[in-house]
Simulated assay, not measured.
Amino acid sequence: MQRSTATEDLTSVEWRDTNWLERVGGFQNQHMVLEYFAMSPFWDRQSNNQILAMQTQYNDLKQSNEITMEALRKMTGIEFAVTHEQPPVWVIQKRYRRGPAPDDVNPIATYYIMGANVYQSPTIYSVIANRLLTSLFHVNSAFKETQSVMDFNPSKGYSWKTSKEKTDKGK
């Protein structure tokens, strides 16, 4: 059975649980970062991380981050991993693992924790589309402004209105 690798667009969502951070004393390691992230709406309850956590919640495997990472590498499917760590910023990647090699993964989405806040990073497509849309809006505004100061006479062709002509037509 193939799981869906689509990710809901939650780029407008900001999530935090300052009580949890105060209770545990902040982030001491990547395991705590993922534990905090698992409480957020961005977490996939069908991920390999969640399955492994459920299978190992009552044994010693839960305590060793290296053993957990090794077990995740042996699984295929959706997983979460901390890909960048520079406190107070952590970058978490949701990815599809195809095999045990480190490069046998396809990124699906990227999230980041800044301080106590968790966010979903926008895709490069959405960033470029937004920038393109903004630039086209400004180009359109420039054309409208140019059109408002332009005059056409069939015998003379196009000409620019003077400031006096603009004020006379405005009355």
Rank of each mutant, 00 (worst) to 15 (best):
E22T: 02
Y111C: 01
S64L: 14
R23N: 04
F37E: 04
G115R: 04
A53W: 04
R73V: 12
T146K: 07
Y158C: 15
I113W: 12
D17E: 06
L34P: 08
D9S: 11
A6C: 02
K144H: 09
E145K: 03
D17F: 00
Q46C: 09
R3L: 08
V118M: 09
N117L: 10
T110P: 04
K62S: 06
N29S: 11
N29Q: 06
A38S: 15
V82W: 04
V89N: 13
L10C: 10
R73F: 12
W20R: 02
T11R: 15
N29M: 06
K166F: 02
T134K: 15
D168S: 15
K144V: 10
S148N: 09
V82G: 07
A71L: 15
T7P: 08
Y58V: 10
I78A: 07
Q147G: 02
R97Y: 01
W160R: 05
A142D: 06
F37P: 07
S155I: 15
A116M: 10
Q46E: 09
I108K: 05
I128K: 02
E35P: 02
M69W: 09
S121N: 07
T11H: 08
V91Y: 10
R97P: 00
I92K: 07
W15R: 03
F152M: 03
D151G: 10
M150W: 00
T5N: 14
S155E: 13
I113L: 13
D17N: 06
P107E: 02
N49K: 11
V13S: 13
P122A: 06
T11P: 14
A109H: 07
W160Y: 00
K166Y: 01
S121A: 13
K74I: 06
W160D: 01
G26R: 02
N65W: 15
F143K: 09
A38M: 11
E14R: 15
K156R: 06
E66H: 05
Y58I: 05
K161I: 01
L34N: 01
V139G: 01
F152P: 03
S64G: 14
M1R: 13
P41R: 05
E8S: 05
M69L: 11
Q57Y: 08
Q120M: 14
V24A: 09
S159M: 12
Q57S: 01
R98T: 02
T134L: 06
P154A: 08
T56P: 04
M32N: 01
W43R: 11
S155K: 15
